[in-house]
Write a protein that binds this DNA or RNA. Structure first.
Lengths: 327, 327
DNA sequence: AACAAGTGTGCTAACGTTTTCCCAAACGTG
DNA sequence: CACGTTTGGGAAAACGTTAGCACACTTGTT
């Protein structure tokens, strides 16, 4: 391995000068620069990042903590985060927490003593206090898909409330006269918001009743069960708003099995806009530009790392109604 | 930050002794151990992994290079790899290459000078020579979903050939009399193997003709187009073997649109066994236990890192016919 | 009694950078 | 010309570990 010392010798300057050149810090004369460049090229020198991390304090590595990369929402986040990270010379460490607080703590400990430069967290179990503690240890954090309005924490979310309204409105405009809702886990911020939107829009309507809502746990199987459950009690529903696309796909499957024709008898809309081109008919959904969330999160994380000022705390990204074949 | 020196002072021993205790190397007396443990507990000391990496030569980090984490095959690999890595104290770095050789090289350079301990590679563009070069730089590699029988490279693949035979056989047993094939990219090893299996099994049958095969590029959209293309020329096909599940899903969508009833008129089978519970009817497939591939790859990678002997070079994992609703 | 092997510990030189401090020209400027 | 100031660059101390070497003390064996 060729070191900075080799370069300095060959170039006839001190290691300090070489270091200054690489870090654009301090003065380096044209001649010295040329000599160093030549030596670097000749020796194919690459600064060792481990040593650099030890001496400086930056590892050029950031982490992405997600509950489970198998949930199709997260690969898209990961892809975006990795693209953004790589483009700025950062390396992305992936952590699956399964929403298990113990695992989360383990990972956080491990990341801290690897001196990670920053963390993007998606977690439904982590507390704002935990995050603040981390920030006090001066490690930048960005939270996605969750919101802590009362704490000094940078969060990136979609306009879940507004999106929910959009979805329900779309069903109403399409002429639905009895709309069911398959909701996500109530401890999940985004799920809660979407459900609140549904209730806001529908609770005053004559047909509204709590049994039109069932929980689908944000999963295909859950959506499937919830749909069957709802249909058993309300065979006359003609619209369904699912809190995410996975549940919508599950519901679609259930409706297929029940022999319900879509969208003529029942209209169905999901939420998220995950890549689901494999289902037929294609799902209408409220798309939240997942990629943008991931990229934005990484951008703000790196800004924090660089001590650049950040204007706001809670970034809410736009959502968009995507009408496909199920409405 | 509390360092090993603080501990050594508090415990009244030298830093060497503390280091030895933490690394289980060399001798440490019971008394010294107790004193150190106490000091560690009191100071909440955690060894700094950066310094450790610089002094030792291990970073306890491994990388997973995949073409695109958005392809549902890879999150499952990533999940498995990360689980296995975490369980052994390793951290997982994720790299998306888009099968772009330049990106691959960039990442490899970056990983090398971060002194990554090992790399799991899934790439259809990387050459065995490149890998050998890396190994010569003494960085352990495991290749998944690709095979280099003539080179000293550890590879993990599924029994693609056998699986293809299984799929075709299944269709034949089910009474299919004219079987089409949607193939993947010919430069992809696993795709090629599956196609060869189809040809092996069918080329001698009376109905066989090259136009029964169309390329679907391993994507949903590709499978969709290929299916339509094939059906236009051969409305009398009654069986379709798709080279992966994504293409099978695309084909299913096309057949839906064409008004073909499944499985009565046409039977359809995919390959991979990715989580696709959202499609209806559920796809029959040849499952390759993706999670196991990922876990196995990480296991062998870590074995190489630890200089443990490895028996073979090319590990071929079993596949399994999963009959669902499309056959 | 002598010697080898095993046990326990400390010193200190790496590991490859960055960064602080200091020194020396060269360069305006009044 | 005496002076601050800018420009350029070297020496060496961090950064927090690991590991090789040296030394000392026990044991056990002949």
């Amino acid at each position: 391995m060729t070191t900075i010392r080799d370069v300095s010798k060959l170039a006839g300057v001190s290691v300090a000068t070489v270091s200054r050149l690489f870090n654009q810090s301090g003065y380096v004369s044209k001649e010295a620069e040329a000599a160093i460049q030549a030596a670097v090229a000749k020796l194919n020198y690459k600064p060792n990042s481990i040593a650099r991390s030890l001496a400086g304090k930056k590892t050029a590595a950031v982490a992405l903590m997600v509950p489970d990369i198998l949930n199709p929402f997260f690969p898209e986040i990961a892809r975006a985060a990795e693209d953004a990270a790589a483009s700025q010379g950062y390396t992305l460490v992936l952590c699956n927490t399964d929403n298990n607080p113990d695992k989360e703590k383990m990972y956080i400990e491990a990341l801290i003593n690897k001196q990670i430069d920053g963390i993007i967290v998606s977690s439904y179990t982590i507390s704002p206090e935990q995050i603040i503690t981390l920030q006090k240890r001066s490690i930048p954090i960005v939270v996605i898909d969750n919101s802590f309005p009362d704490h000094p924490i940078v969060t990136i979310t979609a306009a879940n409330r507004y999106g929910g309204q959009l979805a329900v409105q779309h069903l109403l405009y399409a002429g639905c006269g009895k709309i069911a809702h398959i909701c996500g886990p109530s401890h999940v911020h985004s799920a809660r918001e979407r459900t609140l939107a549904y209730e806001e829009m529908c609770s005053h309507l004559p047909w509204f009743t709590p049994s039109l809502t069932a929980s689908g746990h944000f999963s295909v199987a859950g959506g499937y069960e919830a749909m069957k459950h709802i249909f058993r009690q309300h065979p006359d529903v003609d619209g369904v708003f699912a809190g995410n696309d996975l549940m919508a796909a599950g519901a679609l499957k259930a409706l297929h099995e029940l022999g319900v024709s879509i969208p003529s008898q029942i209209k169905l809309i999901g939420f998220d806009g995950i890549r689901m081109d494999m289902v037929y008919p294609e799902l209408s959904t409220v798309s939240q530009q997942i990629y943008t969330i991931g990229r934005t999160a990484m951008d703000y994380l790196i800004r924090q790392i660089n001590n650049e000022p950040i204007e706001k705390r809670n970034y809410e990204l736009e959502v968009e109604l995507l009408q496909k074949a199920t409405t």
